[in-house]
Write a protein that binds this DNA or RNA. Structure first.
Length: 421
DNA sequence: TCTGGGGTCCTAGGACCC
DNA sequence: TCTGGGGTCCTAGGACCC
């Protein structure tokens, strides 16, 4: 098997540039929700030393001085452009696995070896021309090696966006030039630990005995090691249905008020229920969690969560919201100030495979709830929650979230129209 | 004053049973 | 009052990813 990892360069920034070409060549950053911190950077802003996750207030001076462009994140736009990129990939390869909003693996089975590079080069041009997004492609025998190849494709313009690791010699060379903490699967915990033991590069790591890796890092480390040796060990994307769905937000201002938290949690839960229905799923369990502000060392900290199990998997707003509020009441303590809350629905099953509980469950009520939720879905299109439960407040859960640097909704008018049946 | 959101997988340890 | 070993299931939390 051969994999091609296609990765959009600086994706959120590239999306903004696709509709504002004057941003081309300028240092740009895109911010997280609440305009909290930097989540995407152009090459120019990376070169200025701005790090991923930098709080916005630390670079605000650069913006005020006209040396840095800033945008609030616009997920409707990014999702739309992502769809367009993925369609081009699906037209190129026999099979693709979408890994994230800006990345996908193409499975190149059945494609002749000499065809692989021209095919990928052509894809890079098409995506740039038709969607306006620059992408890089890394090709290798395993997903982890394809990731390594992708780093080279991004870093060195000479590759023109496509880098392939094929021979053992190429593999060794590439691994010897890759810092161990840049390897997919080796994170901020293990990276420094390995370096402390004298393992600097991916090649150093790959040359350790497998047993040693197993003892230090467990089964996940073994997988990474095998992948670097060209043996596929990372799971194929199998389950289409998500196992858990989460909706959470930080608040612009902290709150200790149960009433206010209940309104937020109701909205998060209703959004989870809607995502469930869109996936044609239902969930056996609902978890509500709260966070105090971890940056305020002067305040008491509290990170509680509680899970409610349901007798029958649910996807109606009524049931999910009811369970989430019940969980909230068990964890809420009035003596704290909360900065963030969220709802997770998990233990999901296909909605059409639900088995009723034997006793003590009102089937008629469930069917009524499901019908009402479906009706709400048909009226509430994405981002426009016109219908709500009584526990939800007028407005949208995104209300009160800071978005002071948002670009216009360039592309999404079309998808809104297409979603109305 | 100001510090994101949404996922997956693995493991350690507790509860419970025989 | 003494009190072993092994198995399973569940859950919380850690580590990783983007």
């Amino acid at each position: 098997m051969r994999y091609a990892l296609v990765d959009c360069n600086n994706f959120f920034v590239s999306c903004e540039r696709a509709f504002q070409p004057e941003l081309e060549g300028r240092p740009v950053v895109v911010l997280s929700n609440n305009d909290g911190c930097v989540v995407a950077r152009s090459n120019e802003s990376k070169a200025m030393g701005i790090k991923m996750g930098t709080p916005f207030f630390q670079v605000k001076e650069l913006v005020d001085a006209g040396r840095l462009e800033v945008r609030s994140s616009n997920y409707a736009l990014y999702g739309d452009l992502s769809d367009r990129v993925m369609h081009l990939l699906a037209d190129t390869a026999p099979r693709i696995e979408i890994y994230s909003i800006d990345e996908a693996f193409m499975l190149l089975e059945g494609i002749e070896e000499q065809q692989v590079n021209p095919l990928c080069s052509d894809l890079v041009h098409r995506v740039r021309q038709w969607v306006g997004i620059p992408v890089s492609v890394g090709i290798a025998q395993t997903k982890t090696l394809a990731k390594v190849a992708n780093h080279f494709a991004k870093k060195y313009p000479g590759y023109k966006g496509v880098c392939r690791i094929e021979t053992p010699r190429q593999r060794e060379k590439a691994l010897s030039l890759t810092p161990v903490d840049d390897v997919w699967g080796i994170g901020w915990r293990m990276g420094p630990k390995l370096k402390g033991m004298g393992i600097q590069t991916a090649l150093d790591f790959a040359q350790r005995p497998l047993e040693w890796v197993h003892k230090l890092m467990g089964i996940t480390g073994v997988r990474t090691w095998k992948e670097l040796h060209g043996e596929a060990a990372v799971q194929e994307e199998s389950t289409q249905r998500k196992q858990s769905i989460c909706t959470s937000r930080s608040f612009a201002d902290m709150t200790g008020d149960l009433e206010e938290l209940s309104l937020k949690v109701s909205d998060f839960a209703a959004m989870c229920a809607r995502k469930l229905r869109q996936e044609n799923s239902a969930a056996y369990a609902v978890t509500t969690f709260l966070y105090t502000n971890r940056f305020r060392e002067d305040l008491d900290q509290y990170y509680p969560s509680a899970t409610i199990r349901l007798p029958v998997p649910a996807s109606s707003a009524q049931e999910i919201v009811g369970a989430a509020l019940k969980a909230l009441r068990t964890i809420y303590r009035p003596s704290f100030l909360y900065k963030k809350a969220g709802v997770i629905v998990h233990d999901t099953v296909a909605a059409d495979a639900i088995q009723g509980a034997l006793f003590e469950y009102d089937d008629a009520a469930r069917i009524r709830n499901d019908k009402l939720s479906a009706l709400m879905d048909s009226i509430n299109t994405e981002g426009r929650n016109l219908l709500r439960l009584a526990t939800q407040r007028p407005g949208h859960y995104a209300d009160g979230i800071r978005r002071e640097h948002c670009s216009k909704l360039y592309s999404t008018a079309w998808s809104d129209i297409l979603e109305i049946h």
